[in-house]
């Protein structure tokens, strides 16, 4: 049960921070130039950042940005991606061919260029970060879903359902999707981490959060610049990100086992 409650606790803290962060009496944007890169102390547990803002306060408000970005991107990308993947693999023929070509073009295409184009066309902002990351992210889910469906579409219960006259949609989402969830959940749990990080990479291209707003990714990125002089700056957001990733993965494992058990009992 630890495998369920510890990650749920961590994710709970994350979401609470994300939800009530703006209402807390904190000053994440307050700049005190005399405190630039000051190390942790009794008054500021996590110290100050590169322009003299409290890292602790910024960690709390940054949780919101990262939470929003991570979940909206994973949500959009996994839904769009796995739907397309299932449809392609199930129908086969030219639909599948078209899908593979599109996937390949997306995979061969540098996301950076897309990000710059989006930033240039629509200006920097969180919505555009989500859009850019989802544009690149759906491909992985589509490929995964497609290959899984190819492998299981001839499975006994699918053939049986087809013989019984179930509609394509019903087969896809009642019989195929549940079997796909295990690998998709793994992909998803890794996805959250890479998206939080990718958001930081995008702000370098001028697409991410704009000052003075905070995000964990941009805090880590800014912090790495001062690793020689003030290593504490990167540690707090780095550990926070790791905890979240850890929680999501353990939870993912737990869910996979749980789904496994469910599908086994149903089949027998």
């Amino acid at each position: 049960m630890i495998r369920l409650w510890v990650p749920l606790f961590i994710l709970g803290v994350w979401s609470v921070m994300a939800i009530i962060g703006p209402a807390l009496p904190i000053t994440p944007n307050h700049i005190d130039l005399t405190q630039i890169l000051t190390t942790p102390s009794a008054t500021a547990w996590l110290g100050y950042d590169d322009i003299g803002r409290s890292i602790g306060d910024r960690l709390i408000v940054g949780a919101r940005t990262s939470f929003l970005v991570a979940f909206s991107v994973v949500f959009i990308a996994s839904i769009v991606g796995s739907c397309l993947g299932i449809i392609g693999a199930y129908w086969g023929g030219w639909v599948d061919h078209l899908l593979i070509r599109i996937i390949d073009i997306f995979l061969a295409f540098p996301g950076i260029l897309l990000a710059i184009a989006l930033a240039g066309a629509m200006g920097p902002g969180i919505e555009n970060v989500v859009l850019a990351l989802a544009c690149v992210g759906w491909v992985g889910y589509a490929r995964l879903a497609r290959s899984q469906v190819l492998a299981i579409k001839e499975a006994d219960h699918v053939t049986a359902a087809r013989a019984l006259g179930a509609s394509s949609g019903r087969i896809m989402f009642r019989h195929l999707l549940p079997l796909l969830s295990a690998p998709l959940i793994i992909e998803l749990s890794f996805g959250v981490a890479s998206i939080v990080i990718a958001e930081a990479g995008l702000s370098f291209l001028g697409l991410g959060v704009q000052p003075p707003d905070a995000s964990w990714g941009s805090m880590i990125r800014d912090g790495t610049r001062y690793m020689l002089v003030a290593p504490h700056v990167v540690i707090a957001p780095g550990v926070a990100l790791m905890l979240v990733v850890f929680a999501i993965n353990v939870l993912g494992d737990w869910m996979r086992d749980w789904l496994d058990v469910k599908s086994l009992t149903r089949e027998r």
Partner: peptide
């Protein structure tokens, strides 16, 4: 990075006199 830091500080200092600044950072070419 250093320009962004300056921009954020200027944004803060201007806010103190009642100027509401929003920063837009773009890659160099743009």
């Amino acid at each position: 990075p250093i320009r962004l830091r300056v921009a954020t500080i200027v944004q803060d200092q201007l806010a103190h006199v009642g100027i509401d600044v929003s920063i837009q950072s773009h890659d160099w070419g743009t």
